[in-house]
Nucleic acid binder design. Structure first.
Lengths: 237, 237
DNA sequence: CAGATTACATGACAATAGTCACATAAATCA
DNA sequence: TGATTTATGTGACTATTGTCATGTAATCTG
């Protein structure tokens, strides 16, 4: 199923512009280019499993990947959705631990795999790059603190409204009737993102639609009233 | 209220043995020692506020500090309890962001403050140290993923049982009738740790006591039945 | 294309957990 | 020490949310 094609060299990769690799020196870029693997993945495929050892880092050229943990009740808690330009698996690699989560493809993806040695070599030789990686980790940590606080202190309705706003921020494309969240997620996946039961998501989405906050276009969601969702998503506004 | 005393030099600090500073070179240690501030803090004092700029990192020589976020409903979500040998504030410093959380003293503490410049200097000059800091950040990230998953997928009863086990792991001292959690937390703080309402914690602790899983000794909690708590804390065991 | 599987939807119900109100105990402080 | 504040505890009630059962629609697959 996985396809190896000829890949764009990192030097010419457009996705790189917005990634941690954006300011690497020419030689380091070439080194990565020479050692990376470019693989096309189809929806549903697995990138890595929680508990296995990271052998390198993944760099998303295109597509969407969900990073999730499987809870003891069998449900998936989605930690984040990774898109073009995002890196995957570097936290486990640098933490020298097994993967703390699993990753599967949500939208067909083109992904480069940079082997451990190459990544670590560049990290060791390029202090500025190491600094940027550290900075990214710190930022992620802050995001996780926010998520944890929201998870314990906000209602599901608030969290779902907030999730929809975030999704429209990241995947939204402006249309004539509201902003379309241009990514197909099942209700179960939205539930995993919010941290709730699938049925609850279905019910709340219907409610949001009835209240004309959102609408559906095929499998995609249209955000009609951002202000309304924002009001719902927080105690303030 | 804050007291500046003569401090132990880092070279001789016992808490350092278990900290990120454990493997620093002599010159770097001396540099830190020369530039740090040693301050004694009383219970209830504030180390830093969410939203302010970090001017350095804190290194706990002794005592306990709670790191928390204030949710929009006014409740505190405790992110972690930091103890002897732990560092505070480095994620915000290295993330080049304002503090993402606040920190206050839970048990009287002796804390060294290492100014930004000194910390960054050592970080830049000692690659191995940088590597260790990165590793710690990655580890923390994994812990936050676990916490998020627990928060969304487990019941309060499970989370409280788990929290008690974790506390006894970290602060437990063996006694003749079970392990004593040797730290005084109010019910409100336990609620902040678990992410629930104070009343719920009070009720569940009474229940746990009735079921002879725990007992109270003054303001402290005795863990009588770890196995029982472990059974309660997870769907498996 | 038919059968199977997966996704979506809805109702009924139960249970968990939050809120509010109030009482008592403990700690702090003037 | 007495007064005030803070912490703990309990009851009553409600709202939210999860679970289970069931049905339909959509999608996949041989």
């Amino acid at each position: 199923m996985k396809t190896i094609e000829k890949s764009t060299p990192c030097e010419l990769c457009m996705s790189r512009k917005f990634s941690l690799f954006s300011s690497l020196s020419e030689p380091h870029l070439c080194h990565l280019s020479d050692h990376k693997n470019f693989i096309t993945h189809k929806k549903g495929q697995i990138l890595f499993y929680e508990g296995t050892k990271p052998l390198g880092v993944f760099c998303i050229n295109d597509g969407v990947v969900k990073v999730f943990k499987t809870a003891s009740n069998g449900k998936e808690q989605i930690i984040r959705l990774a898109k073009k330009g995002d890196f995957l698996g570097y936290a486990s690699l640098l933490g020298e631990e097994s993967y703390s989560n699993s990753a599967t493809i949500v939208e067909d993806a083109k992904i480069c795999f940079v082997p451990r040695e190459s990544f670590l070599k560049v990290l060791a030789e390029d202090t500025e790059f190491h600094r940027r990686v550290t900075k990214a980790l710190c930022h992620d940590l802050g995001i996780m603190e926010d998520k944890l606080t929201d998870a314990t202190q906000k209602s599901i309705r608030e969290r779902l409204a907030f999730t929809l706003l975030k999704l429209s921020e990241t995947y939204g494309i402006e249309g004539n009737e509201g902003e379309k969240i241009d990514i197909i997620l099942t209700r179960e996946e939205i539930a995993g993102l919010v941290g709730t039961a699938t049925e609850t998501v279905i019910r709340l989405l219907s409610e949001f639609k009835k209240d004309e906050l959102i609408d559906f276009e095929g499998k995609k969601i249209l955000v009609l009233d951002k202000r309304g969702l924002a009001r719902l998503s927080d105690f303030y506004g």
